[in-house]
Design a protein around this nucleic acid. Structure first.
Lengths: 200, 200, 200, 200
DNA sequence: TATGAATGAGAGTTCATTCAT
DNA sequence: CATGAATGAACTCTCATTCAT
């Protein structure tokens, strides 16, 4: 707004620091939300865990909802990145099922706040919406790239279902009970068989 | 043993009047938690919706956590009741899959606070633990009653998995998106095919 | 809402205490607002000065704006009461001017938060609106009761003007400077002469 | 004496560039304070509206109170300038009353933050005090220049009163209600008649 | 026992002010 | 001098819980 033409010279380091701090804040938010849930996660703790003051947090993210939305959008983008690789190589449906399973499972293990954020319907942003749309397209594209191909009309529902299954898996992984561990194996097999069957 | 540990159950109501009021309070709690989520559900609103005063609510359930645990336990018991019927008649695995699907779906539609309560790991009670154990046994028993029978070693994991699938289904039902509706159909088919396959 | 039929018996003392507390809170709010202005008046200080907790304050007045509106409405009602007496006795215009001057001056000295509250256009309530309307009618009625009578068409503007003059007077009284004291005398004379002149 | 005490004036800008920026900042402060009131006016918005950074704002005016005081002082000086012209020509008391009325009304329309600033008793500066004194002297001089002359002993109080009346007028002008519009006319007549009467 | 007024810790958020760049 | 990120005290408001009646 009030930036003169000379401002750019010295700005790069400031800019970089700002980006780093914003990233640290998002990371902290992800941690705290994963541990405590959305409501119980306090802005104060998020700031503290990022080594920032509460005022600084609000400078970057002026609302609790907004930082949550940004964190969620970031996760969606990460997942999108992870998925684009899958559609480049040829996969059988069964192999694709396993690849998706591993990718999504790995992702959710890394970003444990994802299910919590995904469950909230009151946190929306245009940025988040865009990320979500992109992700859904990537997932469908992965599903569409198998040899032999899956029936196109099954795609949208399939994509949604797979995502949901992953959430279940991660929830079960957290518990560590023997029955839960077995359930995960069941799900893996269930999905592989189902994709195989769809092409038959 | 039949009374349970009294410490975490609040005051046991001895008269019919008290029992009815306690039930009304639990019902109200279920409603409010379903509508607003656990954190946003206030004790004041729960009491008001039950036509009681907060003081009265606290007389029966001295803690928010406790009434939540009691509501959850009640739900687990209800579901247990619904399942015991399934094991009396002979079912093929596919039929059992459908029967479970319908039973669980119906249950969750009736008690929409169930997933919310089930997701919280900080709300535990000896009473709730007992109910959960009983329920898991009933589910396994249903699965064990099919003709031809499912392999016994698959049981525990299978039971857990089926429960999780139902939660997914209910979550999807709430959204109303077309892709979500299709995903539900996928899940139903996935499960039936899987149970059929297990006996082969 | 959940009041049984028996509730009334023991309620009177509780009710009376509640009314007293609400009055104490309003009085405290008036004091603090008068001393510090609306923005700088904190809910915490209001509660403390009323000997109540912050939670208690919010139980009676769930918003800062709302308690301000109630205080203002109360003041308007008080002033209305003070004015109704004036129109019962016969007054010459000059005498009425003095009587109004004294009444309003006394009122404003007693409720120093009145100008502050009257100046805010963002604090409105149906209750307050009603009180204000009633007051304006009373003022006009007082002005209309003089012998000989003032010209009716002058009334509305006259009422407004007199009210404004009173605010000025009180502002000047607060300062204590000699010139301000003289200014007050000027205003008093100005008004008396003007009302006299209007009938001529 | 001519420099004033430097302690409460911030850094004196020595170059034209600095003077212009300081003026822009004061203008912005005036705007924001007029629109939002003193408390709600934020230093950030003032800086932004002047096309400056907050850092820059604080370089010139190290305190919110201080910039408010400077703005107020500037206004007082402006008004002083407007008044000195009035005493040069001969006026009857009635004409002087009208001239003052128009001058003051025009001034207040141009600097709408003036009443807001004038109302605050917690913003004082030696510079502001000096400006105020000078202004009061100019007003008294104007009043003293009428033909026939007003009684000298009435002067100080008269000056204060007239200023107050103008504030009332401006407040009423802002509302736009019919009764308020009439009230303004009453005030204008009241004052003219009073000045006329004083010489009689 | 039932009631609901009272409590106060704590949450989200704002903004004047500082200071490294 | 200019900049704007950083700071943290302070504010409004919420809600689980207690206790006098």
């Amino acid at each position: 707004m009030s930036t003169g033409s000379r401002a750019d010279v010295g700005r790069t380091p400031r800019f970089a620091r700002g980006k780093a701090r914003a990233a640290a804040l998002r990371a902290a938010a992800g941690q705290v939300i994963a541990e405590r849930g959305y409501e119980a996660a306090t802005m104060t703790e998020i700031a503290a865990r990022a080594g920032a003051s509460i005022g600084s947090l609000y400078q970057y993210y002026p609302t609790k909802k907004l930082i949550a939305a940004e964190v969620h959008a970031e996760y969606l983008d990460q997942l999108d990145q992870a998925l684009v690789g899958l559609s480049t190589e040829a996969h059988t449906p069964a192999a694709m099922s396993d690849a998706l399973f591993d990718t999504l499972t790995g992702f959710l293990a890394r970003y444990p706040a994802f299910p919590t954020l995904a469950a909230r319907r009151d946190i929306e942003t245009s940025r988040k919406l865009a990320s979500r749309t992109r992700l859904e397209e990537s997932l469908e594209q992965s599903l569409a790239s198998t040899r032999p191909p899956l029936p196109p009309e099954a795609m949208p529902g399939l994509a949604v279902m797979l995502l949901q299954q992953m959430k279940v898996v991660v929830a079960l992984e957290a518990s560590g009970r023997e029955a839960d561990r077995q359930a995960i194996e069941h799900i893996r097999r269930v999905l592989r068989r189902y994709l195989e069957h769809l092409v038959g």
